[in-house]
Simulated scan of single mutants.
Amino acid sequence: MLRVRVLFLMYAAGVLAVTVVPVRAFDYWGHVPWQAMIRWIPFVVDPLSMTLNVVMFLPFGVLIPLLWPAAGATATRIGWLALSASLSIELTQLLLDVTIGSRRTVDVNDLIANTGGALIGWWLLRLASRREALAG
Protein backbone atom coordinates (compact mmCIF):
# COMPACT_ATOMS: atom_id res chain seq x y z
CA MET A 1 0.00 0.00 0.00
CA LEU A 2 2.91 2.35 0.71
CA ARG A 3 4.16 1.83 -2.85
CA VAL A 4 0.78 2.81 -4.24
CA ARG A 5 0.73 5.95 -2.07
CA VAL A 6 4.20 6.95 -3.21
CA LEU A 7 3.26 6.24 -6.82
CA PHE A 8 0.12 8.36 -6.45
CA LEU A 9 2.11 11.27 -4.99
CA MET A 10 4.62 11.04 -7.84
CA TYR A 11 1.76 10.92 -10.34
CA ALA A 12 0.03 13.94 -8.76
CA ALA A 13 3.29 15.90 -8.76
CA GLY A 14 3.80 15.03 -12.42
CA VAL A 15 0.28 16.16 -13.37
CA LEU A 16 0.78 19.44 -11.52
CA ALA A 17 4.15 19.93 -13.19
CA VAL A 18 2.59 19.52 -16.61
CA THR A 19 -0.64 21.44 -16.06
CA VAL A 20 0.05 24.23 -13.56
CA VAL A 21 3.72 24.78 -12.74
CA PRO A 22 5.06 25.97 -16.09
CA VAL A 23 3.77 29.48 -15.40
CA ARG A 24 5.06 32.19 -17.65
CA ALA A 25 3.59 35.50 -16.58
CA PHE A 26 2.60 37.81 -19.42
CA ASP A 27 4.15 35.57 -22.04
CA TYR A 28 4.04 35.72 -25.83
CA TRP A 29 0.28 36.28 -26.26
CA GLY A 30 0.68 40.04 -26.05
CA HIS A 31 -2.53 41.99 -25.73
CA VAL A 32 -4.92 39.08 -26.17
CA PRO A 33 -7.56 39.24 -23.39
CA TRP A 34 -7.67 36.34 -20.94
CA GLN A 35 -11.17 35.43 -22.16
CA ALA A 36 -9.64 34.41 -25.48
CA MET A 37 -7.79 31.59 -23.67
CA ILE A 38 -11.04 29.77 -22.84
CA ARG A 39 -12.14 27.02 -25.23
CA TRP A 40 -15.87 26.37 -24.81
CA ILE A 41 -16.64 24.18 -27.84
CA PRO A 42 -16.36 20.45 -27.17
CA PHE A 43 -14.62 18.09 -29.59
CA VAL A 44 -12.89 20.86 -31.53
CA VAL A 45 -9.40 19.93 -30.48
CA ASP A 46 -6.08 18.70 -31.79
CA PRO A 47 -6.18 14.86 -31.67
CA LEU A 48 -2.72 14.74 -30.09
CA SER A 49 -3.81 17.05 -27.28
CA MET A 50 -6.90 14.93 -26.66
CA THR A 51 -4.84 11.73 -26.63
CA LEU A 52 -2.25 13.15 -24.23
CA ASN A 53 -4.97 14.25 -21.81
CA VAL A 54 -6.57 10.79 -21.92
CA VAL A 55 -3.21 9.16 -21.22
CA MET A 56 -2.43 11.64 -18.43
CA PHE A 57 -5.54 10.59 -16.49
CA LEU A 58 -5.33 6.81 -17.05
CA PRO A 59 -3.30 6.40 -13.83
CA PHE A 60 -5.97 8.37 -11.92
CA GLY A 61 -8.51 5.67 -12.79
CA VAL A 62 -6.14 2.97 -11.57
CA LEU A 63 -4.61 4.55 -8.47
CA ILE A 64 -7.72 6.05 -6.84
CA PRO A 65 -9.51 2.67 -6.53
CA LEU A 66 -6.32 1.06 -5.21
CA LEU A 67 -5.90 3.74 -2.54
CA TRP A 68 -9.54 4.29 -1.67
CA PRO A 69 -11.66 1.33 -2.79
CA ALA A 70 -14.95 3.01 -1.89
CA ALA A 71 -14.06 6.09 -3.96
CA GLY A 72 -13.37 4.00 -7.03
CA ALA A 73 -16.04 1.36 -6.53
CA THR A 74 -18.11 2.42 -9.54
CA ALA A 75 -17.53 4.09 -12.88
CA THR A 76 -19.84 6.89 -11.80
CA ARG A 77 -17.77 7.65 -8.71
CA ILE A 78 -14.45 7.59 -10.51
CA GLY A 79 -15.95 9.69 -13.30
CA TRP A 80 -17.12 12.38 -10.87
CA LEU A 81 -13.78 12.36 -9.04
CA ALA A 82 -11.86 12.68 -12.30
CA LEU A 83 -14.14 15.46 -13.51
CA SER A 84 -13.65 17.26 -10.20
CA ALA A 85 -9.87 16.89 -10.33
CA SER A 86 -9.78 18.04 -13.94
CA LEU A 87 -12.05 20.99 -13.20
CA SER A 88 -9.75 21.97 -10.34
CA ILE A 89 -6.81 22.02 -12.74
CA GLU A 90 -8.71 24.08 -15.32
CA LEU A 91 -9.92 26.57 -12.71
CA THR A 92 -6.37 26.92 -11.37
CA GLN A 93 -5.14 27.61 -14.88
CA LEU A 94 -7.91 30.19 -15.33
CA LEU A 95 -7.06 31.85 -12.02
CA LEU A 96 -3.37 32.04 -12.96
CA ASP A 97 -4.30 33.46 -16.33
CA VAL A 98 -6.57 36.15 -14.91
CA THR A 99 -4.22 37.13 -12.08
CA ILE A 100 -0.73 36.94 -13.58
CA GLY A 101 -1.40 36.40 -17.27
CA SER A 102 0.05 32.90 -17.50
CA ARG A 103 -1.78 32.37 -20.79
CA ARG A 104 -2.69 28.73 -20.17
CA THR A 105 -5.59 27.55 -22.30
CA VAL A 106 -8.68 26.54 -20.34
CA ASP A 107 -10.44 23.91 -22.42
CA VAL A 108 -13.68 21.97 -22.04
CA ASN A 109 -12.00 19.24 -24.10
CA ASP A 110 -9.50 18.71 -21.29
CA LEU A 111 -12.39 17.94 -18.94
CA ILE A 112 -13.78 15.42 -21.42
CA ALA A 113 -10.43 13.77 -22.17
CA ASN A 114 -9.28 13.63 -18.55
CA THR A 115 -12.54 12.12 -17.35
CA GLY A 116 -12.50 9.64 -20.23
CA GLY A 117 -8.90 8.68 -19.45
CA ALA A 118 -9.73 8.01 -15.81
CA LEU A 119 -12.70 5.87 -16.82
CA ILE A 120 -10.52 3.87 -19.21
CA GLY A 121 -7.95 3.39 -16.43
CA TRP A 122 -10.71 2.27 -14.04
CA TRP A 123 -12.03 -0.16 -16.64
CA LEU A 124 -8.54 -1.57 -17.29
CA LEU A 125 -8.04 -2.09 -13.54
CA ARG A 126 -11.38 -3.90 -13.30
CA LEU A 127 -10.46 -6.05 -16.28
CA ALA A 128 -7.06 -6.93 -14.78
CA SER A 129 -8.66 -7.69 -11.40
CA ARG A 130 -11.16 -10.06 -12.99
CA ARG A 131 -8.46 -11.86 -14.93
CA GLU A 132 -6.37 -12.21 -11.77
CA ALA A 133 -9.38 -13.56 -9.86
CA LEU A 134 -10.08 -16.11 -12.61
CA ALA A 135 -6.43 -17.17 -12.78
CA GLY A 136 -6.00 -17.33 -9.01
Rank of each mutant, 00 (worst) to 15 (best):
S102H: 05
G101Q: 10
L67T: 09
N53S: 10
R24Y: 12
S86H: 08
L48W: 14
L66T: 08
L2E: 11
V32I: 14
A128K: 08
A12M: 14
A82W: 00
A13D: 04
W68I: 04
G72Y: 02
L9C: 12
M10K: 00
S84Y: 12
S84K: 08
R5W: 15
S84L: 15
L111I: 05
S88V: 13
R104D: 02
I38T: 10
R77K: 14
E90V: 04
L7N: 04
V23I: 15
G30P: 07
R103P: 00
W122H: 15
V32N: 06
T92Q: 08
T74K: 05
V54L: 14
R130T: 09
T115S: 10
L96F: 15
A82M: 01
R130A: 11
L127A: 08
A13I: 07
N114W: 11
L91P: 05
D27P: 06
T92C: 14
I41Q: 06
L63S: 00
A135Q: 13
S88Q: 03
L134T: 11
V21R: 12
L95W: 14
L58R: 02
H31P: 08
A25P: 08
V45L: 02
L9R: 01
L83N: 04
V54S: 06
V108T: 07
L52Y: 00
V4R: 07
R3S: 08
P33Q: 10
S129W: 10
P69S: 02
W40C: 02
V20W: 14
F57M: 13
L63E: 01
A128S: 14
A73D: 13
T92M: 14
T99F: 11
M37R: 11
L94H: 08
W123F: 14
E132F: 06
W34F: 13
L127N: 01
G101Y: 06
T99C: 05
V44T: 11
W40Y: 13
Q93E: 11
D27G: 13
